[in-house]
Simulated scan of single mutants.
Amino acid sequence: MLNPSLDISRVRAISIDLDDTLWPIWPTITRAETVLLDWLTHHAPATAALFSNTEALRAIRNQMVTLRPDLKSDLSAMRRESIRFALTQAGDEPALAEPAFDLFFAERQRVELFDDAHDTLAFLSARYPVVALSNGNADVHRIGIGHYFRASISASVFGIAKPDVRIFHAAADAAQVQPHEVLHVGDDATLDAQGALDAGMQAVWINTANHPWPHGALPHATVDSLTALCKLMA
């Protein structure tokens, strides 16, 4: 699906989502939760017994969305406080939340990039300043892809999450261009594509599962892979 309004000649910078755009996120989170549970088994056995599987750990993390709405844009703080809450409920030492989170966070950075991610980032960064723009808490430098990016902006640090136009405008500022000169790339129809459109950017929606577009105005292009994005931009 190609919208005739796509104007590649107008593009002076790229902003790109991370989770589920450059790598699949849920295998990474599941593995990190497994490592966390194993650590709790040895260091906080009462918590490990009370929350005896990764589903239970994820459920209490999701519960924190209701308990601490002030942390909704900071996934690191949300996860840390969910661990602290679990420890407290089980009667273990709440201060163990810090080393437990550090372990989880380190494992969360061990992502497996899609096969065409490196080639895509190399292609884009050779032509434009590229800014990572994520609601997640991935660290592009710890992952080993930081050299492709002019800047990396996360909702956890910025304090505002996509689809709010302010985080998109921050990406344009980081690239030292105007919003209309940015092409945003991401997998989420609402958070990425619609958010970018609302911010005055051009948008490419990576739709690997062939979902129907759920909004009104179309993104400027829809592709089914990062490789297809490079062909579009060539």
Rank of each mutant, 00 (worst) to 15 (best):
N3K: 02
S5M: 03
R10Q: 14
R12E: 14
D19F: 01
D19R: 02
L22A: 05
W23Y: 15
I29Q: 06
I29W: 11
T30F: 13
W39Q: 12
T41Q: 14
H42K: 14
T47G: 04
L50C: 11
N53G: 11
A56R: 12
I60V: 11
M64G: 13
L67T: 14
R68Q: 13
P69N: 09
K72R: 12
A86L: 04
A90I: 04
D92A: 11
E93R: 14
A95N: 09
L96M: 12
F101C: 07
A106Y: 07
V111N: 03
H118Q: 10
L121T: 06
A122Q: 14
S125C: 03
S125Q: 02
R127N: 06
R127I: 00
Y128I: 02
V140F: 00
H141M: 07
R142M: 09
G146W: 02
R150G: 05
S152Y: 11
F158N: 02
I160D: 04
K162Q: 04
D164H: 13
A172I: 02
A172Q: 08
D173G: 09
A174P: 09
V177F: 01
L183F: 08
H184D: 10
V185K: 07
A196T: 02
D198W: 07
M201C: 03
H220P: 00
T222E: 15
T227C: 10
L232P: 03
